[in-house]
Amino acid sequence: MKDMVKKTIFLMVMSYVEINIAATLSNFFIIFPITFLGYSFYVYRTNSNANPIEAFLFGLLVDLIHGSYFGLNATLFCLITYLINSYSNAFKIFSYLQVCLFFGLSATAYVGFTQLVLNIYNFSYITLLVSSFFNIIFCILVAIFTSYFPKISRLKI
Protein backbone atom coordinates (compact mmCIF):
# COMPACT_ATOMS: atom_id res chain seq x y z
CA MET A 1 0.00 0.00 0.00
CA LYS A 2 2.79 2.35 1.03
CA ASP A 3 4.63 1.42 -2.14
CA MET A 4 1.54 2.19 -4.25
CA VAL A 5 1.17 5.64 -2.66
CA LYS A 6 4.85 6.34 -3.29
CA LYS A 7 4.52 5.35 -6.94
CA THR A 8 1.35 7.42 -7.36
CA ILE A 9 3.03 10.50 -5.88
CA PHE A 10 6.09 9.87 -8.08
CA LEU A 11 3.89 9.74 -11.21
CA MET A 12 1.97 12.86 -10.17
CA VAL A 13 5.20 14.80 -9.62
CA MET A 14 6.54 13.60 -12.98
CA SER A 15 3.29 14.65 -14.69
CA TYR A 16 3.45 18.04 -13.00
CA VAL A 17 7.02 18.56 -14.24
CA GLU A 18 6.07 17.36 -17.74
CA ILE A 19 3.08 19.68 -17.97
CA ASN A 20 5.15 22.64 -16.80
CA ILE A 21 8.06 22.16 -19.19
CA ALA A 22 5.99 21.09 -22.21
CA ALA A 23 5.14 24.63 -23.34
CA THR A 24 8.78 25.73 -23.32
CA LEU A 25 10.03 22.62 -25.10
CA SER A 26 7.30 22.80 -27.75
CA ASN A 27 8.97 26.00 -29.02
CA PHE A 28 11.93 23.79 -30.01
CA PHE A 29 9.71 21.03 -31.53
CA ILE A 30 10.45 18.75 -28.59
CA ILE A 31 8.01 16.54 -26.73
CA PHE A 32 9.63 15.06 -23.65
CA PRO A 33 7.44 12.30 -22.09
CA ILE A 34 9.16 12.29 -18.70
CA THR A 35 6.22 10.53 -16.99
CA PHE A 36 6.40 7.66 -19.46
CA LEU A 37 10.19 7.47 -19.23
CA GLY A 38 10.06 7.64 -15.43
CA TYR A 39 7.58 4.79 -15.30
CA SER A 40 9.65 2.77 -17.81
CA PHE A 41 12.79 3.25 -15.67
CA TYR A 42 10.86 2.13 -12.61
CA VAL A 43 9.66 -1.07 -14.35
CA TYR A 44 13.19 -1.65 -15.65
CA ARG A 45 14.81 -1.23 -12.23
CA THR A 46 12.33 -3.22 -10.18
CA ASN A 47 13.43 -6.74 -9.17
CA SER A 48 10.05 -8.38 -9.68
CA ASN A 49 7.71 -8.27 -12.66
CA ALA A 50 5.41 -5.25 -12.63
CA ASN A 51 1.71 -6.05 -12.47
CA PRO A 52 -0.12 -5.30 -15.77
CA ILE A 53 -3.23 -4.10 -13.88
CA GLU A 54 -1.05 -1.66 -11.97
CA ALA A 55 0.40 -0.38 -15.28
CA PHE A 56 -3.10 0.02 -16.69
CA LEU A 57 -4.36 1.94 -13.64
CA PHE A 58 -1.30 4.21 -13.55
CA GLY A 59 -1.87 4.88 -17.26
CA LEU A 60 -5.47 5.89 -16.54
CA LEU A 61 -4.26 8.20 -13.78
CA VAL A 62 -1.81 9.85 -16.18
CA ASP A 63 -4.62 10.22 -18.73
CA LEU A 64 -6.70 11.99 -16.11
CA ILE A 65 -3.87 14.31 -15.04
CA HIS A 66 -2.85 15.16 -18.60
CA GLY A 67 -6.44 15.66 -19.76
CA SER A 68 -5.87 13.32 -22.72
CA TYR A 69 -8.30 10.69 -23.95
CA PHE A 70 -8.86 7.84 -21.48
CA GLY A 71 -7.12 4.65 -22.50
CA LEU A 72 -4.25 6.27 -24.39
CA ASN A 73 -1.61 6.17 -21.66
CA ALA A 74 -3.22 3.09 -20.12
CA THR A 75 -2.60 1.10 -23.33
CA LEU A 76 0.92 2.46 -23.84
CA PHE A 77 1.92 1.87 -20.21
CA CYS A 78 0.69 -1.73 -20.51
CA LEU A 79 2.66 -2.26 -23.70
CA ILE A 80 5.92 -0.83 -22.32
CA THR A 81 5.53 -2.91 -19.14
CA TYR A 82 5.07 -6.04 -21.24
CA LEU A 83 8.07 -5.21 -23.43
CA ILE A 84 10.38 -4.50 -20.49
CA ASN A 85 9.26 -7.61 -18.62
CA SER A 86 9.75 -9.73 -21.74
CA TYR A 87 13.27 -8.42 -22.36
CA SER A 88 14.30 -8.07 -18.70
CA ASN A 89 16.91 -10.81 -18.96
CA ALA A 90 18.05 -9.81 -22.43
CA PHE A 91 18.81 -6.31 -21.09
CA LYS A 92 21.59 -7.81 -18.96
CA ILE A 93 23.65 -8.64 -22.05
CA PHE A 94 22.85 -5.27 -23.68
CA SER A 95 25.39 -2.45 -23.59
CA TYR A 96 24.49 0.91 -22.00
CA LEU A 97 24.06 2.38 -25.46
CA GLN A 98 21.61 -0.34 -26.52
CA VAL A 99 19.52 0.15 -23.37
CA CYS A 100 19.53 3.91 -23.93
CA LEU A 101 18.46 3.42 -27.53
CA PHE A 102 15.66 1.12 -26.40
CA PHE A 103 14.25 3.68 -23.95
CA GLY A 104 14.80 6.62 -26.33
CA LEU A 105 13.01 4.85 -29.16
CA SER A 106 10.22 3.70 -26.82
CA ALA A 107 9.71 7.34 -25.85
CA THR A 108 9.68 8.27 -29.55
CA ALA A 109 7.04 5.63 -30.24
CA TYR A 110 5.04 7.01 -27.31
CA VAL A 111 5.30 10.54 -28.76
CA GLY A 112 4.27 9.25 -32.18
CA PHE A 113 1.21 7.38 -30.89
CA THR A 114 0.04 10.22 -28.65
CA GLN A 115 0.46 12.72 -31.49
CA LEU A 116 -1.50 10.45 -33.83
CA VAL A 117 -4.39 10.41 -31.38
CA LEU A 118 -4.25 13.94 -29.99
CA ASN A 119 -2.92 15.96 -32.91
CA ILE A 120 -3.67 14.08 -36.12
CA TYR A 121 -4.45 17.23 -38.12
CA ASN A 122 -1.05 18.77 -37.39
CA PHE A 123 1.13 15.70 -37.09
CA SER A 124 4.71 16.86 -37.41
CA TYR A 125 7.63 14.67 -38.45
CA ILE A 126 10.05 17.39 -37.37
CA THR A 127 8.69 17.17 -33.83
CA LEU A 128 8.95 13.40 -33.92
CA LEU A 129 12.55 13.40 -35.15
CA VAL A 130 13.76 16.16 -32.82
CA SER A 131 11.97 14.52 -29.88
CA SER A 132 13.56 11.18 -30.77
CA PHE A 133 17.03 12.71 -30.82
CA PHE A 134 16.38 14.59 -27.56
CA ASN A 135 15.00 11.54 -25.75
CA ILE A 136 17.91 9.31 -26.79
CA ILE A 137 20.41 11.97 -25.69
CA PHE A 138 18.55 12.32 -22.39
CA CYS A 139 18.73 8.55 -21.77
CA ILE A 140 22.45 8.53 -22.58
CA LEU A 141 23.02 11.46 -20.18
CA VAL A 142 21.14 9.61 -17.44
CA ALA A 143 23.32 6.52 -18.07
CA ILE A 144 26.52 8.60 -17.95
CA PHE A 145 25.37 10.35 -14.78
CA THR A 146 24.54 7.10 -13.03
CA SER A 147 27.86 5.57 -14.08
CA TYR A 148 29.97 8.45 -12.82
CA PHE A 149 27.90 9.28 -9.73
CA PRO A 150 26.51 5.92 -8.56
CA LYS A 151 26.25 7.02 -4.93
CA ILE A 152 24.12 10.03 -5.76
CA SER A 153 21.80 8.41 -8.23
CA ARG A 154 21.67 4.80 -6.98
CA LEU A 155 20.17 3.86 -10.34
CA LYS A 156 21.32 0.74 -12.08
CA ILE A 157 21.20 1.21 -15.80
Binding site: P52, G71, T75, N85, N89
Partner: peptide, 26 residues
Amino acid sequence: RITPTPGQKILYFLLVSLGIGILYID
Protein backbone atom coordinates in the same frame (compact mmCIF):
# COMPACT_ATOMS: atom_id res chain seq x y z
CA ARG B 1 13.25 -12.09 -13.59
CA ILE B 2 10.69 -14.41 -15.11
CA THR B 3 9.38 -13.39 -18.50
CA PRO B 4 5.56 -13.09 -18.65
CA THR B 5 3.79 -16.45 -18.41
CA PRO B 6 0.98 -17.37 -20.90
CA GLY B 7 -1.57 -16.34 -18.26
CA GLN B 8 0.08 -12.94 -17.85
CA LYS B 9 0.26 -12.54 -21.63
CA ILE B 10 -3.50 -13.08 -21.85
CA LEU B 11 -4.00 -10.48 -19.10
CA TYR B 12 -1.79 -8.00 -20.99
CA PHE B 13 -3.74 -8.67 -24.17
CA LEU B 14 -7.07 -8.14 -22.39
CA LEU B 15 -5.91 -4.91 -20.76
CA VAL B 16 -4.50 -3.51 -24.00
CA SER B 17 -7.78 -4.39 -25.75
CA LEU B 18 -9.71 -2.74 -22.92
CA GLY B 19 -7.51 0.35 -23.18
CA ILE B 20 -8.06 0.59 -26.94
CA GLY B 21 -11.82 0.10 -26.41
CA ILE B 22 -11.96 2.89 -23.82
CA LEU B 23 -9.89 5.12 -26.09
CA TYR B 24 -12.23 4.49 -29.03
CA ILE B 25 -15.31 5.22 -26.90
CA ASP B 26 -13.78 8.40 -25.47
